[in-house]
C-alpha cells in the first residue's frame, strides 16, 4: 500500500471499506487462513519474566463462563459471591500480595479482575488454602466447575482451570505478538524474521483463537512496587 496518488493505489487503499471486500474477507479469506495457518490459543496471564519489576503488579482477568445466563442464573452467581464477600476480602488480605481485586458480571461471564505480586499459582493456592470453601458455591454455576468441587481437594486443577480462563495478555508493543506466537509454536529464534506487513493478519488469526484478550499488561501508577511495599510505606501494615 502506498500513499502516492494513482488510481490503483487509491483503489487498493480503499478496499477495507468496500462492502464486497469486507464480505470476501469475512467469509472466505479469514476462514481460509484459519484453516491454512491455525493459531493455537495462547495461554492466559502474564508471561514469565526475569525482571523483578515484571513480577509485581501482575494482572489477572479471569472470565468464568456462566452455565445459566438467564437473569435467574446470573442472580445465583451474584448471590454465591455476595454472601461470602467478607471472607473473600479477608482471604485476599491474608494472601498479602494482592493490590486490588473486584468481581464483575459481564455478558455471559462472572469475572474476577485483580492485581497481584509474584507467581500466579502461589497467589491462587494461598487464596484457596485460606478461603477455598467460599469458591465452592460458585463452582456449581460455571462451566467446567463441577470437576473442581470442592476446591480445597482440587487445588492444582483449580489453578489450571483459572489459568485457562485468565485472558491472554497481548504484548504491550504490537510487534511482540509475533514473538509470542513463535514461542508458542516452538519456532526457532533463528528462523527468518516475519514480514512486518503480516502483523495485522497474525493479529486477526490470533483473535480467532483468543476471542477475548487483555490489551497489553495494563497501566501502573507506581511501577515496580509490591503491595507490601506500598502498605509498609503508608503505614497500613503488611
Amino acid at each position: 500500500m502506498s500513499d502516492d496518488g494513482g488510481w490503483l493505489n487509491n483503489y487498493v487503499n480503499s478496499l477495507p471499506e468496500r462492502g464486497w471486500f469486507k464480505f470476501l474477507s469475512k467469509y472466505v479469506v479469514v476462514p481460509y487462513w484459519v484453516w491454512r495457518e491455525p493459531k493455537p490459543k495462547l495461554p492466559g496471564g502474564p508471561r514469565p519474566s526475569s525482571q523483578p519489576s515484571d513480577n509485581v503488579q501482575r494482572m489477572m482477568n479471569l472470565l468464568m463462563p456462566l452455565k445459566d445466563t438467564s437473569p435467574i442464573g446470573r442472580a445465583k452467581a451474584v448471590m454465591a459471591l455476595a454472601q461470602n464477600v467478607d471472607e473473600i476480602f479477608a482471604g485476599l488480605d491474608n494472601v498479602g500480595t494482592v493490590h486490588s481485586a473486584r468481581f464483575l458480571l459481564v455478558e455471559d461471564y462472572i469475572c474476577m479482575i485483580s492485581v497481584y505480586d509474584g507467581d500466579f499459582s502461589n497467589y491462587i493456592r494461598d487464596f484457596i488454602a485460606t478461603i477455598g470453601s467460599v469458591f465452592d458455591d460458585l463452582m456449581h454455576l460455571v462451566e467446567g466447575g463441577e470437576a473442581l468441587y470442592p476446591c480445597e481437594d482440587h487445588v492444582e486443577e483449580f489453578i489450571d482451570w483459572v489459568k485457562a480462563h485468565d485472558l491472554f495478555q497481548a504484548p504491550d508493543y504490537a510487534i511482540n505478538l509475533l514473538h509470542v506466537q513463535d514461542e508458542a509454536a516452538g519456532r526457532s529464534p533463528d528462523a527468518p524474521p516475519h514480514e512486518l506487513l503480516s502483523l495485522p493478519r497474525e493479529l486477526i488469526l490470533q483473535l480467532h483463537s483468543n476471542r477475548n484478550i487483555s490489551l497489553g499488561g495494563g497501566y501502573r501508577g507506581y511501577p515496580g512496587y509490591s503491595a507490601a511495599q506500598v502498605r509498609d510505606k503508608l503505614g497500613v501494615g503488611w
Binding site: P52, V56, D117, G118, D119, N122, G224, A228, D232, W238
Partner: peptide
C-alpha cells in the same frame, strides 16, 4: 521464584535476589 529471586516476602528486600 517468589522468595529467593524476587524477595516478595518482605518489603525491605523486594526486587533483590
Amino acid at each position: 521464584c517468589d522468595w529467593l529471586n524476587f524477595g516478595l516476602q518482605d518489603p525491605e528486600i523486594t526486587g533483590t535476589n
